[in-house]
Amino acid sequence: MGAAPGPAFHALRLDGLQRDFGALNALKGLDLTIQRGEFIALLGPSGCGKSTALNCIAGLLPLTGGSIWLDERRIDTLRPEERGFGMVFQNYALFPHLTARRNIGFGLRMRGVPKPELERRVDAAIAMVRLESQSEKLPGQMSGGQQQRVAIARAVVVEPPLVLMDEPLSNLDAKLRIEMRQEIRRIHNQLGTTTIYVTHDQEEALSLADRIVVLRDGRIRQVGAPEELYARPAHLDVAEFMGYRTRLAARILARDGDVLTLDLGIGQLQGIEAAPIAGETATLALRPDDLQPVAEGTPHLRAQVEAVEFIGREFHGLARSARGDALHFRAAERPALGETLCLGADPRRVLAYPEMQP
């Protein structure tokens, strides 16, 4: 298998993608340009439109509006087989009566690839996904992780310009998911292909993607590198989805450059403005990793420990303020249930958003 898959292209462009299901607007004008060689994750909760977008790109769903372009070639009018993309499904979609080898070679046989070339490419794909010892087994004789490797090999053996993956790891256990994440990224790097990967798992998206596209209600909310979305979500709903579990109403007491002093009614913290705030009220967002016990003399919130779990090397806990606010925190030592803690955070990790966001 060559290092440059499929027909050469510089960019895939989604231009105002719309898809309606009756009165339901599943996609509401998506605009996105994906460069050749990128690994893009479409991330969001169930029903946000990410799988619909993938199926529209694949040609499995027609558009209601907008267009899809490979460079200057419009492709949304083409049938799925004419687009020539590779697709990896959540349920693997393998032929149960065909061996792994024959499943992998199916697309090449349909394209009429001569047998010597077909065998060479299938051998290379089997080696790439490290299934040499499993190649003559039927899918039913293989583990879920092995079946997923077969599905990936089948998608890439045709050397497509674009590989589309729809939650391919959701049926695997936690250990296999981590292993397969590493394999998928390794294969992407090895082939130099372009990949669009749908997931609802922020950890998957952060570990795999060059850029993450966060969707909500059929619209793109933010596009950026994993580090950017992790540290600086542009909207409160993006922050929530990226793991900012603690949300608190706050009043801005003072501004010193871009640092805000925030009164939360249960104590004070300093933070930064994650999105422009016009008034003097805000909503504060914090990751559990960033809120931790501090000395009483520093800005803090007071709360009583309700639950603690050991996650290896440290503890994650849930504390509740006298007002009833839930605060998710981490600690190096196990706190006692019922203990009252002073919880604080680095101001750069306390993000303040407008009280109400569109």
Rank of each mutant, 00 (worst) to 15 (best):
S207C: 08
L208K: 04
A209V: 05
V214M: 03
V214A: 02
L215V: 05
L215D: 02
G218I: 02
G218Y: 01
I220V: 11
I220A: 00
I220Q: 01
R221L: 11
V223K: 00
V223A: 01
A225C: 10
A225M: 14
P226A: 00
P226N: 02
L229W: 03
L229M: 06
A231F: 11
A231N: 13
A231Q: 13
A231V: 13
P233G: 14
A234K: 13
A234W: 09
L236E: 13
A239C: 11
A239W: 05
E240K: 15
F241S: 02
F241T: 01
F241Q: 02
F241P: 00
M242S: 00
G243D: 07
G243M: 01
Y244W: 09
Y244F: 11
T246K: 00
T246H: 03
R247N: 09
L248D: 01
L248A: 08
A249V: 11
A249S: 09
A250N: 01
R251T: 15
I252Q: 00
L253C: 10
L253V: 13
L253P: 06
R255H: 12
R255F: 10
D256F: 09
D256M: 09
G257M: 07
G257I: 06
D258T: 10
D258C: 06
D263S: 15
D263Y: 07
L264V: 05
G265A: 06
Q268W: 06
Q268H: 10
L269I: 04
E273G: 01
A274L: 02
A275G: 14
I277P: 00
G279H: 09
G279V: 02
E280V: 04
A282T: 04
T283Y: 04
T283R: 09
T283A: 14
T283H: 10
T283N: 11
T283G: 09
L284Y: 04
R287E: 02
P288Q: 04
D290C: 12
L291R: 01
L291Y: 03
Q292P: 03
P293H: 15
P293M: 10
P293R: 14
A295G: 14
A295S: 11
E296I: 07
G297Y: 10
H300D: 03
H300A: 09
H300F: 02
L301R: 05
R302G: 11
R302L: 08
A303N: 06
Q304M: 08
V305D: 06
A307C: 13
A307Q: 12
A307G: 09
V308W: 07
V308P: 00
V308E: 05
E309F: 09
E309R: 15
E309S: 11
I311T: 15
I311L: 13
G312Y: 14
R313D: 15
R313L: 14
E314A: 12
F315N: 12
F315T: 05
G317D: 03
L318Q: 06
A322Q: 12
D325K: 00
A326H: 07
L327D: 01
H328G: 05
